[in-house]
Nucleic acid binder design. Sequence first.
DNA 1: CAACCTGTTCGCCA
DNA 2: ATGGCGAACAGGTT
Length: 266
Amino acid sequence: MPELAEVEFYRKQWNTGVGERIEKVHVHAQKRIFRTTDALLLADHLSGKILRTSHAHGKQMLFGFSGGVWIGLHLGMSGKLFSTVNNYRPAKHDHLVLFNRNTILAFEDPRQFGAVRLHLGEKHPDWWTSLPPQLLDDNFDINYVREALHRRARSALKAILLDQRFFPGIGNWMADEILWRAGLHPSTRGGKLTDTESLSLYFFSKQVSRDALDVISTNWGTPPLHWLFSHRWKDGGICPKSGKPLVRETIGGRTTCYSPTVQPLL
DNA sequence: CAACCTGTTCGCCA
DNA sequence: ATGGCGAACAGGTT
């Protein structure tokens, strides 16, 4: 599930553990989320540490612990973070569970496309500090979007929006929502956009990010019916703008939903 | 049973 | 050399 706002929602689920000492660590060391990390080493470093900080950046998360221990998490396709009572018995897909005095913090991920990494040091890891600007940063401006469109001039807009090097946090549903609001066909090549259309892509990228965070990141509310989101997975879904049927096809390697009359191909 | 999935990376090919 | 595309990853859901 997780895109920008869902990642932020899950990040907060571990807030109950801030300031708490980790008394025990449970890992499924052989699982794929540990493919780039030694799970037992990670568990060893986390034991006895105190969770201090957490951040989300696009789909990436970073948790900072006492003693210069950092954990990077990516939720992949099916990852979730949650917190519950301390006598919880870890389930089949709870691959990383931190036990505090009264609560536990868990990372569950059935499909294991997510990832965990360990960093030791006083500063944030390099991979974190070198991430591209967040969509709601001032640095993510119209010139930045124009540059992205220029660099991927021959790619479909859908593929460009999904490129985490340029649009960190955008996933499948947000990309479709942005293009629909901007009135741009997902197959349009990046290099074809006029200045006005580039501005529209920029504007709605920020707007959809804000809207998604407003609705999802705190209480995981239901998105309103006037968003494409509410119609895009239903067979026979109707476009809330045109009243005509939505279309689904594979664009940029992903199932894409759009409204042909609202989003003409350039 | 088969198809599909809110993500990323790899190898192949142009 | 770059860049796009399909496959692969692994399990759940429809």
